[in-house]
Design a protein around this nucleic acid. Structure first.
Lengths: 156, 156
DNA sequence: CTCAGTGCAAAGGATTTGCATGCCG
DNA sequence: CGGCATGCAAATCCTTTGCACTGAG
């Protein structure tokens, strides 16, 4: 066993639940939940923070680059994974909000690192209401919002 | 005259003011405010919404692609222009917030279009306070936040 | 004159795709 | 068996860079 991550109690159950949900999402779009896709999800669930593709293939040498890209795309399209484009060299990927919960990011403009953060629910509510109101004025149909804080992380 | 944009009263003065500010920002970093850079700013100020590079060079045929990229980079680095990376094919560019005012975006996930929006200042304040509090817990130094609503625009 | 800025063409690099093969249902 | 999935290598395409030339101070 690798000791690099100490799961919180119930973590294993949560992972199983995640796999179940993703499996049904894939099935709903006539896609299979193959071992390659499962490994992808394992890596992301294990990391606990957004990863780039090089991060991902480095974390599991069984993953081929092109298949990883293709499967990430499939998983993004079925709503299991979210792609984060920061403008840096690589996009980042993390489990989607239905699996990870609604959250936002601290983005380091120096090293590109991304950390997940959670806002108070009353702030979230207010933001969502404001955005919804503005969107309706433009005939815009909201799907989700993203709120990122850009700056320098503790290491930079 | 092109009728496609009806400047509000004072728009011309505002543009002059923008050029002045950018000129001094560039001078502060030992860069010249050349005609190519001025044209870039004119195009962006005139558009009133974030543009991609193809948009920009199409809007002013005098702009060479490589010089446009280079000058956008210079202007981004001196704080005159902001680069927006959405994950679509092209990055978008718009005048920076000191020139355009603090605002956010509606981003269409279908066609990639971006529209500027403004939130109530009390919402902004609350968001900023929340983010600042969270950042300090992580030893993160905030520079600015971005808040985007992703969804489908009226045309899609 | 000097050196930043410019434009063309070529290079760079993340991501995507063609194609032959493997494997699940 | 039939068709999705895989992996390798090649292609794609946004963006950056090399280089010779131009223009401003």
């Amino acid at each position: 066993m690798t000791a690099q991550s100490r799961p919180v109690p119930g973590d294993k159950d949560r992972l199983a639940e995640i796999h179940l949900q993703i499996g049904s999402r894939l099935a709903g779009q006539d896609h299979r939940y193959t071992s390659g896709r499962r490994q992808l999800v394992d890596v992301l669930a294990h990391a606990g923070q957004p990863m780039t593709l090089p991060d991902i293939v480095a974390a599991d040498r069984n993953l081929a680059q092109s298949s990883a890209y293709r499967n990430l795309d499939v998983l993004v399209r079925c709503g299991a994974i979210r792609k984060i484009s920061t403008g840096g060299d690589h996009a980042h990927f993390e489990l989607a909000e239905p699996l990870l919960g609604h959250h936002h990011h601290l983005i380091c403009t120096s090293c590109g690192a991304i950390e997940d953060i959670h806002l108070d629910s009353d702030v979230e509510l207010l933001v969502d209401q404001s955005l919804t109101a503005i969107a309706s004025q433009s005939g815009f149909t909201p799907i989700h919002h993203s709120l990122d804080l850009h700056g320098h992380c503790a290491d930079c």
